[in-house]
Design a binder for these strands. Structure first.
Ligand SMILES: [Zn+2]
Ligand SMILES: [Zn+2]
Ligand SMILES: [Zn+2]
Ligand SMILES: [Zn+2]
Lengths: 142, 142
DNA sequence: GCCGAGTTGATACTAGGTCTCAACTGAGAC
DNA sequence: GTCTCAGTTGAGACCTAGTATCAACTCGGC
C-alpha cells in the first residue's frame, strides 16, 4: 500500500473526506524529498488552492502525518513525520533536518514539575548545529 | 543605579547610542509587569515609532536584556531577561511565564551530538503546562 | 433525486515583523 | 563653534505565514 493510500485511509478513519484536492496536496508533500514551506507547496501544487493547501497541512499536522520544524531563522517548515513524539536536529548550514527519536527532556520533566508546581502538558524543542557533512566540508577547506 | 541606566550603559559599552527613542522603549519595557507583545508595546509607547520599537526589542534581545517566549498558540512574547541561558515554563491557562534557570537539555546534548555526528550549536526549548495557581483553582471547582 | 454536512477557493484580512529612504542627530574632528 | 558623517529615526511599503469569510460545490446516505 502506498503512502498516499495509507494516509487516505487514516483520513477516512477519522471521518474526513478524501477529496481530489487533498489527494493532490498529500501527493505533493510525499513528492518533496526534504522539508518544505507551506507557501512553496501551495505554489507548486496545482489541484488545490492556497487555503486548501494550508488547511490540509494543518489537518495532516494534527493527525501526526507531517511535523512542523522551526528553522534557526524562525521560519517554519514541514516534514513528513515518521514517528510519534520526537524532536529535530537542524543543520544551520545546509538545512538538513534529522529526526531524533529520543526525547531529550522527558527525563527532566518530572523534576521540573516537582520544583515548579506546574503540571507539564507539553514542550517544544529544536536543536541546531552543523551536520557531519557540513563539518567535513569545512574541515577540508581549513 | 536604575535598570534603565544599567541598560543604557550596556548599550553605550557596545557602541550604540542611547537616544530618547531607545530610552522610551526601554522604559516602556521595564514598566510592563509580565510578558508583552511587540506590537502592543509599539502602540503603548509614545516616543518611538513602530519600526524603532521592533528594532530596539531586537537589539535588546541580541544583548540578552529581553528574551523571546513562544506561547503555546505560537505567538511570540517578550520578557525582561534576568539571567543568561535559560528556558521558560508557560502556563497554558493564565499565560504566566516562569524562568527555568537550569537547562533541561544540556546533559543530553553531548550524547545526541555523538550519536548524530552533528556539532550542536544551540537549541530552543519551551515547556507548557498549568501553573500551581491554575491547578488549585480547577481543583476547587471539581 | 434530495438533503445537509463537509469541502473548496478567491479574496480579504491579520500578526508580526523587515525594508526603504529621506530626514534628523549628535559625538568627535577641526 | 561648526562641520561632518555614521548612526538613528519614522512613515509607509512590503513580506511571510498564515486565518476568516462566504458563496458555490460535492457527495454519502436516505
Ligand atoms: Zn548540513
Ligand atoms: Zn520531547
Ligand atoms: Zn496559570
Ligand atoms: Zn537550554
Amino acid at each position: 500500500m502506498s503512502d498516499l493510500e495509507q494516509i487516505s485511509l487514516e483520513l477516512e478513519a477519522r471521518g474526513y473526506r478524501v477529496t481530489p484536492s487533498r489527494r493532490a496536496v498529500i501527493a505533493a508533500i510525499l513528492a518533496r524529498k526534504n522539508h518544505f514551506a507551506a507557501d512553496e507547496l501551495a505554489k507548486r501544487c496545482r489541484g488545490a488552492g492556497r487555503a486548501t493547501v494550508f488547511r490540509t497541512i494543518r489537518l495532516l499536522s494534527d493527525l501526526g502525518v507531517v511535523c512542523r520544524v522551526l528553522m534557526d531563522d524562525g521560519s517554519p517548515r514541514y516534514l513528513v513525520s515518521r514517528s510519534g513524539h520526537h524532536h529535530h536536529l537542524v543543520c544551520t548550514e545546509c538545512g538538513t533536518v534529522q529526526d531524533l527519536d529520543q526525547c531529550a527532556v522527558s527525563g527532566a520533566l518530572r523534576e521540573i514539575a516537582d520544583a515548579s508546581g506546574y503540571e507539564i502538558e507539553g514542550h517544544w524543542l529544536e536543536l541546531y548545529g552543523r551536520c557531519a557533512a557540513c563539518r567535513a566540508r569545512t574541515a577540508v577547506l581549513a
